Amino acid sequence: MKNDDHTEVHEEPRTMSDDEVHDYNGLTLNEQGEEEKKEEPEDDGFTIHIHSFSLHDIPWWKKALFVLGAAVCFGIFILLAIAAAWIFLVGGAIVLGAALILYLVRKYIL
């Protein structure tokens, strides 16, 4: 019992037009049947990639972590501002005290 199931397609090969080649998004094979890699455009250093997202798609715990992180950063900024003001206040008082001592020494002792 010989099974002779040959399916032959007698269809003329057809070439793609330039528009079809330009708009083709499928798999491209070379003459050896291997997948051809699409050439990536050269990066000239001026390429900008913009990714958009929706706040509704972000899980609640990530939103909570963001708010907590923002609050911590704001608190640290306030503490640093208070520390800088304190340093300037104390430093100014030290300079003013030293100037007063020098003034009194020059006026009454020398």
Rank of each mutant, 00 (worst) to 15 (best):
residue 34 E to R: 09
residue 29 L to I: 11
residue 18 D to S: 07
residue 24 Y to G: 08
residue 32 Q to S: 15
residue 63 K to T: 00
residue 49 H to L: 07
residue 50 I to K: 08
residue 55 L to A: 06
residue 51 H to T: 03
residue 76 I to M: 13
residue 89 L to I: 07
residue 33 G to Y: 11
residue 103 Y to W: 11
residue 104 L to I: 15
residue 109 I to A: 09
residue 82 I to T: 08
residue 39 E to D: 07
residue 44 D to V: 02
residue 93 A to L: 14
residue 59 P to G: 07
residue 98 A to M: 13
residue 21 V to Y: 10
residue 60 W to D: 12
residue 9 V to K: 04
residue 93 A to Q: 07
residue 34 E to W: 03
residue 2 K to E: 15
residue 90 V to W: 01
residue 101 I to R: 13
residue 100 L to I: 09
residue 89 L to V: 12
residue 26 G to P: 02
residue 8 E to V: 04
residue 33 G to S: 15
residue 87 I to R: 13
residue 17 S to V: 02
residue 48 I to T: 07
residue 85 A to Q: 11
residue 108 Y to I: 03
residue 50 I to M: 02
residue 91 G to R: 04
residue 32 Q to F: 13
residue 63 K to S: 01
residue 12 E to D: 14
residue 25 N to D: 15
residue 62 K to E: 02
residue 50 I to F: 05
residue 100 L to R: 10
residue 18 D to F: 03
residue 23 D to M: 02
residue 18 D to C: 03
residue 13 P to V: 08
residue 79 L to Q: 13
residue 106 R to W: 11
residue 46 F to P: 00
residue 18 D to H: 05
residue 24 Y to L: 08
residue 56 H to E: 13
residue 37 K to C: 01
residue 9 V to S: 13
residue 29 L to C: 13
residue 109 I to Q: 08
residue 100 L to V: 06
residue 64 A to H: 05
residue 68 L to Q: 11
residue 62 K to V: 01
residue 30 N to T: 06
residue 62 K to D: 00
residue 68 L to K: 09
residue 21 V to P: 04
residue 27 L to W: 00
residue 58 I to C: 12
residue 22 H to W: 08
residue 10 H to W: 04
residue 27 L to G: 03
residue 64 A to G: 00
residue 50 I to E: 05
residue 79 L to V: 06
residue 73 C to H: 01
residue 15 T to D: 12
residue 26 G to D: 15
residue 13 P to T: 11
residue 87 I to P: 00
residue 17 S to K: 03
residue 72 V to N: 06
residue 62 K to W: 01
residue 63 K to P: 00
residue 83 A to G: 03
residue 66 F to Q: 14
residue 52 S to Q: 04
residue 24 Y to E: 13
residue 63 K to W: 03
residue 56 H to S: 14
residue 66 F to W: 10
residue 28 T to C: 12
residue 61 W to I: 13
residue 89 L to K: 12
residue 11 E to C: 04
residue 37 K to D: 06
residue 85 A to N: 14
residue 39 E to F: 02
residue 20 E to F: 00
residue 10 H to G: 10
residue 29 L to P: 05
residue 84 A to M: 11
residue 25 N to W: 01
residue 42 E to H: 05
residue 62 K to S: 01
residue 87 I to E: 13
residue 5 D to G: 07
residue 97 G to I: 06
residue 17 S to G: 10
residue 33 G to F: 10
residue 110 L to V: 03
residue 3 N to R: 04
residue 36 E to M: 12
residue 105 V to W: 10
residue 79 L to P: 00
residue 60 W to I: 11
residue 75 G to K: 01
residue 40 E to M: 10
residue 69 G to I: 05
residue 86 W to C: 10
residue 68 L to N: 07
residue 4 D to S: 07
residue 88 F to K: 15
residue 75 G to F: 06
residue 49 H to G: 01
residue 44 D to C: 02
residue 109 I to G: 01
